[in-house]
Design a protein around this nucleic acid. Sequence first.
RNA 1: GCUCGUAUGGUGAAAUUGGUAGACACGAUUGACUCAAAAUCAAUUUUUCGCUGAAAGUCUCGGUUCAAGUCCGAGUACGAGCACCA
Length: 938
Amino acid sequence: MNFNDIEKKWQKYWEENETFKAINNDSKPPYYILVEFPYPSGAGLHVGHVRSYTAQDALARLKRMQGYNVLFPMGWDAFGAPAEQYAIKNHIHPKEAVKENIKTFKRQMQSLGFSFDWSREFSTTDPLYYRWTQWQFLQFYKHNMAYKATVPVNWCNTCKTVLSNEDSAGGICERCGSLVVQKEKSQWMLKMSDYAEDLLKGLDDTNFAEKVKLGQINWIGKSVGAHVKFKVYDSNEEFTVFTTRCDTLFGVTYCVLAPEHELVDKITTLSQKEEVKSYKKACTLKNELERTELNKEKTGVFTGAYAINPVNNEKIPIYISDYVLSSYGTGAIMAVPAHDERDYEFAKKFNIPIIQVLEEETGSKHSDETFKKSIVAIVYDEKNDKYLTINWHELGGRLFIGGSIKDNEDAISCAIREVEEETGYKNLELIRELPKINHHYYAYNKDKYFNIECTGFLFKLKNNEQTSLNLDEDEKFTVEWVDKDTIAKEIKDELHLKTYSYAINPTAILSDGIHINSEFLNGLNKEEAITKMIEYLEEKRLGSKKVNYKMRDWIFSRQRFWGEPIPMINCPDCGWVPMNESDLPLLLPDVAEYVPTDNGESPLAKISEWVNCKCPKCGKDAKRETDTMPNWAGSSWYFLRFMDAHNEEEFASMDALKYWKKVDWYNGGMEHTARHLLYARFWVQFLYNIGLVPNKEMIWTRVSHGMVLGSNNEKMSKSKGNVINPDDIVKEYGADTLRVYEMFMGDYEQDAPWSTESLKGCKRFIDKIIRLKNKVIDEENYSKDLENIIHKSIKKVLHDTTNLGYNTAISTLMILANTYDKKDHITKEDYHLLLTLLNPYAPHITEELNEQLGYKPICESKWPEYDEEKTLDNSKVIGIQINGKLRGELEVTTDENELEVKERCLKLENIKKYLDGKDIIKFIYIPNKIVNIIIKKD
RNA sequence: GCUCGUAUGGUGAAAUUGGUAGACACGAUUGACUCAAAAUCAAUUUUUCGCUGAAAGUCUCGGUUCAAGUCCGAGUACGAGCACCA
């Protein structure tokens, strides 16, 4: 029999015997393994699918052998735009296209021998399934979690259609390449923002991989800050800003409102009216691309109005600018150019003052410090592109010019004086004063600790006129002009380096430090100052602590045909009325001809016999909602349906949900770890809150797999011609080979390129397994000399298969097979064991060989036990190092003590050679690991 | 720009707690079997050198340690996601 026949034979056996059927309420412990159900595209199964399905299949098969009642289901996420477009083009109903694709996918999956429980199969497009998706939407609505709102959508004027964010990436329509514009539409929304905190906290009740948790946390984007009220000068108006940095309030030099802010028209002065109006107009015309373009210069206009800074009553101008988003926070900000990059950029452009309120700290603090003020002067020679430095030689290396400020002297005159005293140059022109730095240091010559507030200055040399220096000082240092490279290499002092970086790279200071110019906050660090400022604001009723989240409500409407219809009816008298639950499912109409509308409504809007209906409340003529649900809807709860797939009374019974408890292990692509997972968790938490599921989190472990890339290390795509079709591989090399190869190809969580050469290596491994049968002699029990490696292998394969170590599990099995191969004979039990361990990965060939040996099928057997005692070695070869360098090896037994090991060590020829005439300072013996002998060096 | 991930031979990659770097494969080279090929088996394969031995070596620089791929600090390159989130 060839491998294709063997595969068919066993696939048939499993199907006929319902080997993988999971039974609800079985007495065995439940274990739920889930892989993301695929979107059945026309392209068929991808080798990337094969990778994750095989991994989970191996886990499922192993868990079954361990005595678990394993639920390992499969279904189809079949709503979506591609099927819709295909259907429009070919004048058929999308469900026909979907049916075809599902058939292909299922055949391919079955040809790979995945142990799915096909009795629970369903598609999100089955009315029996989406009936419950609709029902759950009604629950959202009834609990005030669904509402209508007007939001902008991406709209393509050429295609006359609404686009998803994915299809309009970069502001270009994916299909026709024309510019995408924003259009206002009334949409159904789910109040997901209410769940932000719960979704954050819920992560503690999961075992998600750390990077998955991080993805969720970032998406939710919690930030703790404050609301601060600003009064408009000479008016009764006021506005509120959201800030995470209320500690910098004394550095506020202007405010910005979003162009759409409601106050803009009210406060704009007469003289600025025209300018404001045209800027607002320009903003609405901007498309996505322009708004998000990198390096875009800040724009904005002055409203003519002023605000009052609540902490110091300063009068500050109010601008409008599109760098402030109306959708986040309050749509208004206080601007602190000294400590925010965007504000800095804006202030530079509009010549707005910059007030530093936070000094960066350098050096290390000491308890007994003397405070003084000082300067660092950086003098630049434009002509030669060089900087003036003083080389103190051994005394202190290379520095810029520095010095202490005398009493009754201001910082700038001090800087000019010091430059002349130390270098003789006196014709300086100030380019810029640099931010102040708080520096701690120890002065050797004075044996004292100092804390200085240092102001930096950047000067330009006007001419080379130089007075002569007195000789005494000339002996201690030399004055040198140096270039950038020399500075980078030779200046080590932290204070001078920091000042230099301010000079060449002017920017806002974002790091922590010490507050200055801030009255009651002076001397405090960032965190202390924030706490104190919030207290102050709340006490004076000027503001309050406020938490903000980036996560918005879920836009739940799509203007498409091929999705779950939203079961809402618009009645001229009663408004929006939910359908009666007993009338569900609301079916999609059975028409093959439908065209998109010109105004962006769903194609359903044109099918009048479907749209027109009666109001469930008053019975008058009414119209159905024509928007459909997003793709994410059906996939947000499918894992619950698998627990009770054919229930006609409920989406799933509490009984079934309680039996399976939760998804023990969920696997999918990295691209879904943020959004899909978040939507699914939100959906479940809502169902929990209304008492329909037993746990607030229904997914325990979430793992993300790496992609299978083409052999050229690029993503597989038709256009690149690097696509591998699993059907071809199964036909030529067999399903088992493909499965083993995809598990062996590399770290499961990492991307891996396809290699047909490597695949052939796995075929050779399978062939070797078959050849080993010739060495089997009719004897029970393990061979004595194989016992150690057999027990070790059972342990390792078990550990690796349940801990994402699929590649090392395979290599362990290769080593075991190689060991068998070196022997003339192996026992039946030796061979049986190898087949059992390999079975989760290569189920067909192992079952076949196992049957030929006369054993009962592996899929009905137990996972072999290992004896910890027998995995231990009683001796081990360890390395012997001398001063950390490997110089020899020694076989030690576990019961040898350090003294015995040392004695034997020192007798070894190559060790003696190195020790000859040297003193041993230390002898380190780490049992079972290594010996390190430390000797005195010459 | 921000967040996350990654960096080890010609290639895919191993290396539980810091403890002999390169397991297991692929490819390559040589040999055996063969009329020949395939298959199989055996051997070599990190680099350099004065080759029975030695030195260097896990992106770069620095640190901790008897001992660092692994821990700490600074940086570089590549990849992914998000992007003016105050």
